[in-house]
């Protein structure tokens, strides 16, 4: 399945693929229709008022200025409050928990399953038709988590855990975006959401628990060696190779993701090499330094090895 970079309509509430999005669409549509009816009614009243002569001015002010807004605003408040509540979702103790931490400018994703913490990054896999509790956190500044096709958005505030229960109702790939200005590369802070049937979701979780694929070709082995000796491990973890780096995205399955740099470039060797050699150009303000001191063949080797981690 290709990345959402080629796919139009992967980031719209109107192509609702989740309960939250469906309710948002419902509220928007009903508000539009009701206000249209009210407008038509007011126009009619105006038409008759034009023909009648004098009288009832006080009642117009009381009715149109106090009673009418009071009723409409109360109805709207109740409707939006209940819709908002249903978007946020009732807390479900049995629902799987996914912990998402925003960093400048990427997303750390930890699936909590059977007492294990399974780490991935920048791509959130959700089970189809199953409520999931997202624990939204931030590591530095305020970010906002938003997958328009699936649910409403929620801020990620440093020092707080905001819970959002979401249910995806359509299989496929959707696009999310940081929706709160968070710094220089805020527009380049996106992610992909992959909705899979429950069995495939379970298989995905298992794959997160396994060690990363072995380096097979001489080039891949060289790439792994360069990765270990160039300081990459200080920030990045690869299961079974080096598991201590926590400052940057987990790379155990980096080649399996559809995109690179938090949803911004297609995953392939060329983009990986360009990214390693000059991050500052591809994502201004990112914490990762540019590794342009690697020799050409070494750069290619690291890119080839990372691409093979699926």
């Amino acid at each position: 399945m290709g990345s959402t970079l080629d796919q139009f309509g992967s980031q719209t509430t109107f192509a609702d693929a989740g309960i939250g999005a469906a309710r948002t669409v419902w509220l928007t549509n009903s508000m539009s229709i009701i206000s249209l009816v009210i407008l038509a009614f007011v126009m009619l009243v105006a038409l008759f008022a034009w023909r009648s002569t004098g009288g009832g001015r006080v009642w117009w002010i009381i009715g149109g200025g106090i009673v009418f807004p009071l009723i409409t605003l109360s109805v709207l408040t109740v409707a939006s409050a209940t819709t908002l509540r249903s978007i946020t979702g009732e807390a479900q103790p049995e629902a799987p928990v996914i912990e998402i931490t925003a960093y400048q400018y990427w997303w750390d994703v930890v699936h909590h399953s059977e007492g294990r913490s399974l780490r991935d990054a920048n791509e959130i896999v959700l089970p189809l038709n199953m409520a999931v509790t997202l624990q939204l956190k931030s590591n530095d500044v305020i970010h906002s988590f938003w997958v328009p096709s699936v649910s409403g958005k929620m801020d990620m505030i440093p020092g707080r855990i905001n819970e959002l229960t979401i249910t995806a109702t359509k299989e496929g790939r959707f696009r999310g975006q940081c929706a709160e200005f968070c710094g220089l590369s805020h527009p380049l802070m996106a992610f992909e959401v992959l909705v899979l049937p429950v069995e495939e979701y379970a298989a995905y979780l298992e794959s997160l628990d396994e060690d990363a694929r072995d380096a097979v070709t001489p080039q891949q082995r060289r790439g792994k060696e360069v990765f270990l000796t160039s300081g990459c491990t200080a920030c990045h973890a690869v299961n079974g190779v080096s598991e201590n780096g926590r400052l940057g995205p987990d790379l155990s399955r980096v080649g399996a993701r559809a995109s690179l740099g938090a949803g911004m470039w297609r995953m392939n060797r060329g983009n990986l090499a360009g990214w390693i050699a000059d991050v500052g150009d591809m994502k201004p303000g990112a914490q990762m330094p540019s590794y342009n001191d690697l020799s050409g063949p070494d750069l290619r080797a690291v890119a080839a090895w990372l691409e093979s981690l699926k």
Binding site: W265, G270, N271, A273, G274, A277, D278, M282
Partner: peptide, 21 residues
């Protein structure tokens, strides 16, 4: 655009192709 040439090269006429590698 698909092969990702733009991550290393400036390619006029291709969106976001402003690489300096």
């Amino acid at each position: 655009a698909q092969y990702g040439c733009g991550s290393c090269h400036v390619v006029p006429g291709v969106a976001r192709a402003h690489g300096t590698v």
